[in-house]
């Protein structure tokens, strides 16, 4: 869903004068949504800018993405990165057409990562009781 959102936002920004580069890991959604420029990294969702704590991997992805601003010259291109996740075990689960709905209940109250974040938001005045 996030990939669809970036496609829509990228097209809007570009139409209003801001060049964009989308980075993501769902190439089919990029192909359908056709953002102006896209970089595809074949990782499980949640890792569009690299593996955790792997600075070299993260930097190679972000470096290639921003280089695309200069390299890519026609609308709708997708550059495919050669970065490899390592094992392919995640593909089966990601491709599964069965199983439970893994999304959270559609609650309309702020869902803080940590309880202390709520206190911090109250303290800053960003959140009111």
């Amino acid at each position: 869903m996030c990939h669809q959102t970036v496609c829509l936002v990228a097209r809007h920004l570009e139409a209003h004068g801001i060049p964009t580069m989308c980075v993501g890991s769902a190439i089919d959604i990029f192909q359908a949504g056709r953002p102006p420029r896209a970089t595809f990294v074949d990782y499980p969702l949640g890792h569009s800018s690299g593996k955790p704590f792997d600075t070299a991997d993260q930097l190679s992805i972000v470096r290639a993405a921003v280089a695309g601003f200069t390299r890519m010259t026609a609308p709708g291109e997708i550059q495919v990165l050669a970065n490899r996740w390592g094992d392919d075990d995640w593909r089966a689960e990601a491709s599964s057409t069965k199983g439970q709905d893994t999304r959270q209940p559609r609650d309309e109250t702020p869902q803080f990562q940590l309880p202390a974040d709520r206190s911090a938001a109250l303290a800053s005045g960003a959140l009111r009781e």
Binding site: C2, V6, A10, P19, C22, V23, S25, L45
Partner: peptide, 27 residues
């Protein structure tokens, strides 16, 4: 709602920031 709310709000922010280009990272 993405078209009518999210995208225009992002555009407004980026314009106020005077960015020349934007990197959009999808999850």
């Amino acid at each position: 709602r993405v078209r009518e709310e999210v995208a225009p709000a992002i555009l407004e922010k980026f314009k106020a920031q005077r960015v020349d280009c934007a990197l959009l990272v999808a999850m």
